[in-house]
Amino acid sequence: MITLRPKSRSKLFDLNLKPIGPFLAATIASAAFTGMFVATPALAASCCGGGSATTLILPKGARHLYDFSIDIESYDGFWNQDGEQVNDPAGSDLSQYRMNFGYAYRFADNWQFSAILPLVKNDNVYPGISAQNTALGDTTLSVWYETFDQITCVWQVNTFADLRPAIYIGSSILLPTGKSAYSDGVDNSFEVTGRGLYRWDANLIVEKTIYPVTLNAQGSYGAYLERPVNQEFDNAVEPYDKKLGDRRYLSASVAYTYFFEDVDALTVSAAIADLREGAGKINGQSDPLTEMKKSSVSLSTTYESEDKSWLLKGSWSHAISKDDWGQSFPITDIFTIGVSYVVR
């Protein structure tokens, strides 16, 4: 039986882990869009943790975090550039599976570093062709600064100071370690597991917990770095410079935490997210054909062990299969299961 009961602060402060999941690679009806990441909170809100689409967040006081998760993303049509929902070809079955290896390390009281490395499998079946490919995806490295020295989660609001939220300011870089259209040895779009460009993100998380409820808002702004391209799918082409459009991600979530008798905790959260990418550039000229957007909703749950070292998590991110919920982007469902281990 689940009961909600107050705990001492010292115990509750241990709940603040919140790795937010491996973000999602939304591939085009195959892998061609891989790397257009859409956040999936793999761990629901918990005390003073936080996260973004592209990183793991350590709880206050913890030194290491190891994270492993599996994403299963299935495709169900797409939005065209007018925002209209269009079905995938009848008889097609398009999926992408990702194993995400994550690690976070606290190198100062309020500073932490994290890395996420995905292994991606594309599984695309059309009536006339099918392809399965496995390769690394793009790697994310992040640095976060916590603007607070003490845990800001409270059970009651007694003073104005109790309303202070936990604010995280971070920066991430996406390394093109995946197979892109410009990589050596990539023959077709089914083999693509990365976007082939570096991207720098500025991230912000604001979170407030007044038990048992947590409110969380996240945002990030990313800029791709221009790069030269001299081959496409192993075919030499006239060299040109390519840059994808700036990326904006916003999400908001609300969570509720239950505490079991033996101090285990179960957190359930609901979130809404919006991802947009602007026009890219080819040789300095605007390329509006790469613009896209996607809105999604998600449900997440996390079970935390009594000693707060182990977390089991699951989430479901759902893109609404209706007009105007996206543009030039696949409509997908993403199921994530994962486990995290925290070392203090």
Binding site: I28, S30, F78, N80, P89, S189, S328, F329, P330
Partner: peptide, 8 residues
């Protein structure tokens, strides 16, 4: 392949 980018 009747994908979003193809459509664009």
């Amino acid at each position: 392949m009747w994908c979003p980018l193809c459509d664009t």
